[in-house]
């Protein structure tokens, strides 16, 4: 098979991630604005965006923020919100064969929901390259941090995000990505189980566990529906 050049792989990643970056722009601006509202300095807000680089976790953290920062509580909460990364990373690790082994652990720092989803979709058709991975991830973190700075500086200028429908932007983006995973009625069962369990867990348990529980419910249904005849004989 013809191996694509790193540069063209990087450009392909960049092109794929542009719509995500456009969507992330107001979200990062908003987060910066909220962080400033909670009393974080522009430096603190941008350092956090660079160190954490996880939208959902950062929004939850800023929601729970008080002064002085309850750092241990925040650390534990952010860990729970991000536990889904363990499952995502485990899935992605199966496709990193073409990426030099010394690079795998460092570049995992850039794994976020959106670029991970693009990687998972790409490996359905072709191997994952480090060029493509960085083409997705580097522009994302660059925009995420720089928009945090602008947002923190702009303060409350943006106003209520709901007025613009921005709070629905992440859902719309994930719906678009989900369409790429569609493989018929089994996918419907997986998504139905995940949605039902996650929505119920969000109401009953609260916190961030609904993401992990929904993901496990969907995976469980997939395991149950798996037809034995497709199984490769054990060696």
């Amino acid at each position: 098979m013809q191996r694509a050049s790193s540069r063209s792989e990087f450009v392909q990643g960049l092109l794929d991630i542009i719509p995500v970056i456009v969507a992330a722009f107001p979200i990062a601006l908003l987060w910066g604005t909220l962080a400033a509202g909670k009393g974080l300095s522009t430096l603190e807000a941008s350092l956090m965006s660079a160190a954490v680089f996880a939208g959902a976790a950062q929004f939850v953290a800023i929601e729970l923020w008080s002064d002085p920062a309850p750092w241990l509580f925040l650390t534990v909460t952010v860990f729970i919100v991000n536990i889904r990364h363990v499952l995502m990373g485990a899935s992605l690790a199966r496709h990193m064969g073409d990426i030099p082994s010394g690079w795998r652990a460092p570049i995992m720092f850039l794994m976020a929901d959106e670029n991970w989803a693009f990687c998972e979709r790409r490996v359905l058709k072709q191997p994952l390259t480090i060029g493509y991975y960085l083409g997705l991830g580097l522009p994302m973190i660059t925009v995420w941090v720089s928009c945090t700075v602008i947002g923190a500086l702009a303060g409350q200028l943006l106003g209520d995000p709901k007025a613009y429908g921005f709070d629905f932007a992440m859902a719309a983006m994930f719906i678009a990505i989900l369409a790429g995973f569609w493989k018929g009625s089994r996918t419907a069962a997986v998504l139905g189980a995940s949605a039902a369990v996650a929505a119920a867990a969000k109401i009953t348990i609260g916190g961030a566990w609904f993401i992990v529980l929904g993901g496990l419910a969907g995976a469980g249904v997939a395991a149950l529906l798996h037809a034995e005849k497709e199984e490769v004989p054990a060696t």
Binding site: S194, K202, F210, I211, V212
Partner: peptide, 20 residues
Amino acid sequence: AALDALPPAILMAVIAPTIT
């Protein structure tokens, strides 16, 4: 099969509270 289903299942779980 379970691992393959994880990506869409997690994406769906993240947005489930929003879309309902």
